[in-house]
Measured scan of single mutants.
Amino acid sequence: MQNSHSGVNQLGGVFVNGRPLPDSTRQKIVELAHSGARPCDISRILQVSNGCVSKILGRYYETGSIRPRAIGGSKPRVATPEVVSKIAQYKRECPSIFAWEIRDRLLSEGVCTNDNIPSVSSINRVLRNLASEKQQMGADGMYDKLRMLNGQTGSWGTRPGWYPGTSVPGQPTQDGCQQQEGGGENTNSISSNGEDSDEAQMRLQLKRKLQRNRTSFTQEQIEALEKEFERTHYPDVFARERLAAKIDLPEARIQVWFSNRRAKWRREEKLRNQRRQASNTPSHIPISSSFSTSVYQPIPQPTTPVSSFTSGSMLGRTDTALTNTYSALPPMPSFTMANNLPMQPPVPSQTSSYSCMLPTSPSVNGRSYDTYTPPHMQTHMNSQPMGTSGTTSTGLISPGVSVPVQVPGSEPDMSQYWPRLQ
């Protein structure tokens, strides 16, 4: 039975679970980093996980050691009161100082060594604690504590007292930064006198190289990059290397530039699409467009005044059976039934097929058609009795279509119309 579990990581490298990497692998990681390889490249070359490479390099940059820390136990506290007071002093002298600059000053002034120097995250935590204590304490208590930490007896009751030896409130920041720059020169002199001055200088240079600022491109470089971006948004590694040799930039910087440029292009394309949609959409909808001609068919113009009344309900007709019959029939052209047409008796099958359309009241044959006459024609229609054979009435077949029909004066039988409509 094995005491430890061995495995293979996602890159194909072998590791022992819970145990640190061998010293030979750690040394190779540092050597590759000094030669300029990126952590992701080191991870692929040595088949070590990216997190492990970053952790080893980060500890090497901070402490200069590649040895693993002790497994188990607690780390001794490195942010001692003396170190905290120095950090507060540096922050007062130059409020814009960075944590890694404070760390360098602690090393250069001999406050800490490589073994007990606090990390950048520890210094940031100390600065946050100082800021929170400043908010919790009152103004007087804060000034007393700062005077105690600074070891001075001057008056701290006013704002300019934060910067000793100065009279203009805006000047101390520059003086403090100048003092810090002077301390940086002392850093070089002190570290050069040490035993491991060369190694420390190499480590600091490598650290500065990794902690780079934003790349500033010249106009020629920007023009070359934009020209390549117009050709393709995704250049391959050969195109990037050719462009890197042409404009004297690292291939990694060119790759990052193209990634950022593609993101910018997507944002601009989104804005262009929004403007295009806004320009195509009308600002207001016309009133006429809300009524579609496919839904509402136009009603033909009436030929006679009587045809303006298109349904039985508008003429005072309360018989719903006839109203439904007229509205359900398709529109037909106007025609006239003459008196000489043969009077065919209704076929029983045809009569039964339209039995649902006729009223059940037996008085329908005896009703006159003056009910369908509009009010303004009552006088004219009353002067001509319906009993004469020459009287013409208008029957409504569908809305908007008038059918003048000659009705025999002897017997106005409704059943004569249905064979004609089939």
Rank of each mutant, 00 (worst) to 15 (best):
E101M: 05
S121L: 02
I29T: 00
I71T: 07
N116I: 13
P76H: 02
A79L: 07
G13C: 03
D140R: 11
V126Y: 06
V16A: 12
E82T: 07
V48I: 14
I87A: 15
E133G: 11
G7Y: 08
A131L: 11
R77I: 05
A99H: 04
S54A: 15
P22F: 05
K134F: 11
H5N: 11
M148A: 07
G73P: 00
V126I: 15
G7F: 10
T80E: 02
S96L: 14
D115T: 06
R125S: 00
C112G: 09
G110R: 13
V111F: 08
G64M: 08
E101T: 13
Q136N: 07
L57G: 00
D115W: 10
P22E: 04
R19H: 05
L32G: 03
K28N: 08
N124E: 03
S65F: 06
L57F: 00
Y143S: 10
C40K: 08
Y143N: 10
V83T: 15
S132D: 09
G72V: 00
M142D: 14
G36D: 06
E109H: 14
F98Q: 04
L127E: 08
K134N: 10
T113S: 12
I66G: 03
Y61E: 05
L46V: 14
G36K: 05
G12Y: 02
E101A: 14
P39H: 09
V120L: 05
G58P: 04
L149H: 12
S96F: 15
N116V: 13
Q10L: 12
Q27G: 11
P118Y: 01
V8H: 08
S35D: 15
V30G: 03
L106V: 06
L149M: 10
S35M: 10
E109A: 10
G7M: 11
A139E: 13
V53E: 00
G7T: 14
M148Y: 12
S54K: 15
M137V: 11
V83W: 02
G18T: 03
P20N: 03
R19Q: 06
Q27D: 05
I66A: 06
D104C: 12
P68R: 00
N3T: 10
T113D: 09
G12K: 04
V30H: 02
Q136R: 10
I29L: 06
K145C: 12
S108A: 15
I71F: 05
P76M: 03
R26M: 01
H34I: 07
Y60E: 00
A37S: 10
K75R: 09
P68C: 01
I42V: 11
V120T: 00
D144Y: 10
P76T: 05
Q2G: 09
K134V: 13
T80A: 04
Q2V: 07
R105K: 08
K55E: 00
R26W: 02
A139G: 14
V78F: 04
R59C: 04
N3P: 12
C94F: 12
I66Y: 08
I66R: 04
V84C: 10
N114Y: 13
V8R: 13
L11C: 06
M148K: 11
A37F: 05
T80G: 06
L11S: 03
N116M: 11
S35K: 15
E109V: 12
I87H: 00
